[in-house]
Write a protein that binds this DNA or RNA. Structure first.
Lengths: 240, 240
DNA sequence: GGTGCTATCGTCAAGGTGACCAAAAGGAGG
DNA sequence: CCTCCTTTTGGTCACCTTGACGATAGCACC
């Protein structure tokens, strides 16, 4: 603790890491970069970096990194703090405390457009070998995946994976892909529509080739869902 | 991001703050200290401090602070990371990033025994004026209170507020006091006993003055509760 | 027009929940 | 010993949500 005597606290490098998720190509995917510098050169890692200056805000740094990697403005995506990781030897170079953020971005609209996409790529979370990740990013990624899955239960963030307008089927596919479970279309629609403020009808409907046109919705003002939409172990477990 | 050029990341003071909660005297209380040094001298604040050395682990620092303030070993209490706060001007002296931890300690057994209890005291959370708290601790405390309340819904941490053995009524009082709601004793007991691993019967029962003796339970191995125990807005809202 | 596909509405039984009655098991006081 | 009061515990019942699933609407293609 600080004293009147000239004791000064130790100074530490603070970084911000991002776990950016999307639903792309019928798969739950995360943005990973291939490291081009030591240590762990060649390994996969979550995008991130140190604070730019000693006075940069944490959330501002997260938004800056997100913009650099995906070209997306933080106002358009869901961005929240996940946790902070600071085991002393997690980086062999020096002591680094990293504040990790969770970002959910819409699917087809976000192929790293405008980002300085050196070697960043979307990877399906089910295909990632934990051992191929640098530092302690396997642990971070596992906690981020679980956070994202549970967030779908008691919040409306699933709409963050969709575009500004979406059908009930598209929203349901988000749940099915992220959870890896099949959901009944009729029960799902009943549940969503019974939650006040989850979605709002736009009045429009899709024009598609084959099948009845679907009504289009946009995200509503509600953020929390109570009671939650629980992922039960029933239903089919094959998402596709 | 780090380059091969001799760019070095800014170094920042990292602190650990604690939101230590207990159920004491039929009230939901948090441990606060009265600041003896500038800035915000005389204000109330969450206990905490800077990392002791540049190589101290974050959770180790939290456990050390907890032991200093309460004399409790971290193995006996529930201790989890809450969030990290790093707004640039939250401390007027210098840039400080603080990792806040949430601790839940048992009730009568923890009156700062053994701690260097300078001016630390339990304060009922309902009696705390937000403006009387230093720095951004009012925000931190509000989020910690909400985290603790919601944790009771989907985990078994409520047993952390009880002693090693407790009655169903004592456990129910924890929920009632933390949530500020009355709960039906019979429905509560049915719900708890239907959750596998929440509590285990000890076979013993209380010897008390008046009323039927209550069975004694201890905490079970379960940590997560599914489906959650929801705090509905029904029931009486007066906890006492 | 028939077929196939998707979306949407409705029905029904099973399980969980809140509200509440009733009984068990002790102490205090007459 | 009996009654009253207390607290704990077991049980019932109506209501709601949920999962499972039948049925219909609306469009494209052949």
């Amino acid at each position: 603790m600080p004293q009147a005597t000239p004791w000064t606290p130790p100074l530490i490098a603070v970084a911000v890491d991002l776990a950016v998720f999307t639903v792309l190509d019928e798969q739950f995917a995360v943005l990973l970069i291939e490291r081009g510098i030591e240590p762990d050169i060649g390994s996969l890692a979550l995008p991130g970096g140190f604070l730019a200056t000693a006075s940069e805000d944490l959330s501002a740094a997260a938004a800056r990194e997100l913009a650099e990697e995906t070209g997306l403005d933080a106002a358009q995506v869901h961005l929240e703090q996940l946790a902070t990781y600071g085991v002393p030897d997690r980086d062999p170079r020096q002591r680094v405390v990293t504040v990790c953020y969770l970002a959910l971005v819409p699917g087809p609209l976000s192929p790293m457009a405008g980002g300085d996409a050196r070697n960043a790529a979307w990877r399906p979370v089910d295909d990632i070998e934990p051992a191929s990740l640098a530092f302690d990013h396997a642990t971070i990624l596992a906690e981020a995946v679980e956070r994202a899955r549970s967030k779908l239960e008691y919040t409306t963030v699933a709409t963050s994976f969709c575009g500004p307008e979406f059908t009930m089927s598209e929203l349901r596919r988000v749940y099915e892909i992220v959870w890896g479970r099949r959901l009944d279309p009729r029960n799902f629609q009943r549940k969503i529509l019974n939650i006040p403020g989850f979605v709002e009808a736009t009045g429009k409907q899709t024009v598609r080739n084959g099948g009845r046109p679907a009504l289009l919705y946009r995200a509503g003002p509600a953020r929390l869902v109570q009671p939650p939409i629980l992922r039960t172990r029933t239903d089919d477990s094959s998402p596709q």
